[in-house]
Structure formats: structure tokens, C-alpha cells
Design a binder for these strands. Structure first.
Length: 261
DNA sequence: GTTGTTACCTGTACGC
DNA sequence: TGCGTACAGGTAACAA
């Protein structure tokens, strides 16, 4: 499932392929992925791609007028010049290339307009842009479990289920811990581990746990370095005890009961 | 305002 | 082999 490192990898492989190119045609094969968009597809024609960037898990494509925003959801992929399949939800034809949006589960979305929508504007800061002091101060304002807070995109944007579990393990914090009860020293460590793991995952081109691929069709490598995620019952790489899985906020949550108290 | 729960959606794994 | 069921999770909507 694409989180910040996966989306960053897609952006890096996507940018050189479409920046500077003009959109010639747009075809959509699913209304489901357009649920956040009021504008008509024809409005994209003849717009030129200026820059490809990212806000959290959203791919933000700056056009010479307006924005095109893609969220990959759970199973979204961007591929180029491949044959249309049953999972092709959109084809954006640009000068010299065709960009295919593939999404089997259709949790993803494509939207565009003159300005960014509220759901993109209201995201919290990038995990690399928040200071340790502000991070700790923000924790003090929330009484819910720290795991749920890390997944809240209004708190920090881009952290998903995998990297929340991995960051909490590396910081030695139990996922059920109330955020407001985490003291400064621990908060600093979580802040540092969160940034470190995201950077390491970007270096490894993300984690391919389901069917994630970058825009060149390549898998990521970081899943080989997971310490708790999807390792239920396997020995902890630090203490040797079994990794446990619980459901927290409706999400599978992996942790080591000995290392995370 | 915050927190928790559920729906959306479909491929995959599993049990019978 | 084939069928039914549970599960995976990012976001939005809703309830408490």
C-alpha cells in the first residue's frame, strides 16, 4: 500500500516522463475514482505539466493552469504505454506517451481543478518539516492511542500503517500508549525514528507488500527490512520474543510486547 | 473538537 | 475443483 516513501518513489519516476509535456486527451473508465472531482475531463486538454510533486500520499501535478491530483489508495499504480486491462481506470494521453492509471480495488482517486481541494489543503505538515518540540507539543493535545494519531493525516501527512508500526517499534513505544502520556525524551526518539525510517524506505524505493510498483513498474525493496509489520508470530529481531498482532482503530497493528511497553 | 466505528472495494487466502 | 467467507487498509462519513 503506497505511503509516503512509495508515493515519493512514484513521483521521482513519474516526473521525468511527463514534466513539460502537454495533455492531449483524457479517458476515464470508472466514476468511482472521480468521486472528489467536480470538473469535466475536457478541462485537462491542452494543459501542460509544469512540475510533479507530492503532499503526503497525494501526487500533486502542477499544470500551466490548475492542478491534477492523484491518490493511489491501496492498489493504485501509474504505468506508461501498457495495454489497457480490466483494472485500467484512466488513460491520460500526453505528447509522446500515455499514462495509465491502474487500480484494482479503486480506493484511489483522481481530481483536478484551478486550485487544490480542501482535503489536500488541510493535511498536516510533512514528517520532515515538523520540529521535535512541535511534535511533542502536538502529542500532548491528543489522548487517543499514538498509533491512531500517527495515521491521522491532519497530524503529520504521509505516514501509513507500515511505517507507523515500524517507527513505534524502533522507538520502543507500545502502539496503544496514549499520545499525551509520551514524555519529551520518548517523543524525540519517535520523531527521529519516524524521519529515519521514511528516509531509509525512500532510499530502498518503498515497500512492496501487495502489488505496489513505481512508474517504471519496479518493486520496492524496503519490505525486506521490516522488523514488525506482517511478522506476526515470528521472533523479534531484538529480543527473540514473538511479534504480536492486534487490531487498533480497525487496523492491523504489529508490535513486540517485550520491546514496546 | 476529539475519538471510535463503519463503508467503500476487490484480490487473495482459507476452510469446507 | 468450486464455493462462501474473512481479511487487507486510506479516506470519508457518521456516531458518541
Amino acid at each position: 500500500m503506497p505511503e509516503l516513501p512509495e508515493v515519493e518513489t512514484v513521483v521521482r519516476t513519474l516526473a521525468p516522463r511527463i514534466e513539460g509535456r502537454r495533455i492531449l486527451d483524457v479517458q476515464f473508465y470508472s466514476k468511482q475514482i472521480l468521486r472528489h472531482c467536480g470538473a469535466k475531463p475536457g478541462a485537462l486538454r491542452d494543459r501542460r505539466v509544469v512540475r510533479v510533486g507530492r503532499r503526503g500520499k497525494f501526487i500533486v501535478i502542477d499544470l500551466d493552469r490548475g492542478f491534477l491530483v492523484i491518490h493511489l489508495g491501496m492498489t493504485g499504480q501509474i504505468l506508461f504505454d501498457t495495454p489497457r486491462t480490466t483494472h485500467t481506470r484512466a488513460i491520460i494521453t500526453l505528447e509522446g506517451t500515455s499514462m495509465m492509471y491502474e487500480d484494482s480495488r479503486m480506493f484511489g482517486s483522481i481530481e483536478w481543478g484551478e486550485r487544490l481541494t480542501a482535503r489536500v489543503e488541510k493535511l498536516g505538515p510533512e514528517p520532515f518539516d515538523i520540529s521535535a518540540a512541535d511534535f511533542h507539543a502536538e502529542l500532548q493535545r491528543h489522548r487517543g492511542p499514538i498509533k491512531s494519531l500517527l495515521l491521522n493525516q491532519g497530524f503529520v501527512r504521509g505516514v501509513g500503517n507500515i511505517y507507523a508500526d515500524e517507527a513505534l517499534f524502533r522507538a520502543g513505544i507500545h502502539p496503544r500508549t496514549r499520545a499525551s502520556r509520551i514524555r519529551r525524551l520518548r517523543a524525540d526518539r519517535l520523531h527521529a525514528e519516524m524521519q529515519a525510517i521514511l528516509l531509509a524506505a525512500i532510499e530502498n524505493r518503498g515497500s512492496s507488500v501487495s502489488d505496489y510498483r513505481d512508474a517504471e513498474g519496479r518493486k520496492g525493496e524496503f519490505q525486506k527490512l521490516h522488523r514488525v509489520y506482517d511478522r506476526e508470530g515470528q521472533p523479534c529481531l531484538v529480543c527473540g520474543g514473538p511479534i504480536r498482532r492486534i487490531v487498533l482503530g480497525g487496523r492491523g497493528t504489529h508490535y513486540c510486547p517485550r520491546c514496546q511497553r
